[in-house]
Simulated assay, not measured.
Amino acid sequence: MKEIALYALDIAQNSITANASRLDLTLLETPEAITLTLADTGKGMSPELLARVSDPFTTTRTTRKMGMGLPLLRMAVEQTGGSLTIESTEGVGTTVTALFHPTHIDCPPVGDMGDTITLLIQGAPQLELRYTHTVDEACFQLTTEEIRAQLGPELSLAEPEIILWLKDYLQEQEMLLREHKGMKA
């Protein structure tokens, strides 16, 4: 994977597979660090699985014998001198925190977080998603709870018109954050 947004999508898919009803996805960008955190209310992992989860030959999938998401993320953060922490409690959920050093030559770009969030909502419209992206002191937050409150209970977040609006809105907000970052440079 060549973008942090794609790592976020992959790890978020793990949360959905773990039957999470809620996912908090946070991206914090400062000159010193890019921190990606995904915290879910999924089924969590046993201590034994948690100890092995970064091994590419450990997976809970039945369709293949290898799980590459977390090992690839660990490799990407460690290549920048960063770190990956995974906390999980069975029956409670999992939190994955990846810290990248943005000044390192191997740090991947953030990528298109708007597309990542749009795909997550389209693919799992029942998921309560809270997305927070902070660049220095500028912050943008989107929650599916707020969107549902505005739309009403009769509309699905996966409706094509809603997805198109959401994609445009997220791209606009991400662009504003990038512009803010450009003004600081």
Rank of each mutant, 00 (worst) to 15 (best):
A33I: 02
T60C: 07
T132V: 13
P31D: 14
Q171G: 15
A76K: 00
T143C: 03
Q173Y: 13
R178L: 11
I86R: 13
A149M: 06
P153E: 13
L28H: 14
E154N: 08
Q13V: 07
G114H: 05
R61M: 10
P56H: 09
G82A: 07
P109T: 03
A20L: 10
T35I: 15
K65E: 15
Q150C: 04
G182T: 06
S156Y: 00
T35M: 09
P125S: 01
G93H: 03
N14Q: 14
A51T: 09
T94I: 07
S46C: 01
E32N: 12
P153A: 15
Y131M: 05
C139P: 00
I86M: 13
S21G: 13
L36I: 06
P31M: 05
P160N: 08
P31L: 05
V135E: 07
P71L: 06
A51I: 06
V77K: 01
G114I: 01
T62L: 14
L36D: 11
Y7M: 01
L28D: 13
A51R: 08
A98L: 01
S54N: 14
A138M: 01
I16T: 09
L176Y: 06
Y7C: 06
A51N: 06
K184N: 04
E87F: 07
D10C: 07
S54T: 15
H180L: 04
N19V: 08
L99D: 14
N14C: 12
M1A: 10
P31V: 08
R74A: 12
G44P: 13
E29Y: 09
C139W: 00
A76H: 04
G67A: 12
L142V: 15
T116E: 02
Q122K: 15
I163D: 05
P109L: 00
H104L: 03
G152F: 01
R22D: 09
L120Y: 04
G82C: 02
N19C: 09
D136C: 06
D10Q: 11
V92F: 06
E159F: 02
E159Q: 13
N19P: 06
E3D: 09
P108F: 05
H101R: 14
K181W: 13
L119E: 06
T37Q: 12
H104T: 04
L129D: 07
H104V: 03
G82Q: 06
G42Q: 05
K184G: 01
R130K: 08
Y169I: 00
A149F: 11
D112K: 00
L142G: 09
T63R: 10
I162T: 12
N14G: 14
L142N: 10
M45Y: 13
L99M: 15
M113C: 12
E87W: 03
T132K: 11
S83R: 15
K184L: 13
L99C: 15
G82D: 04
I105K: 14
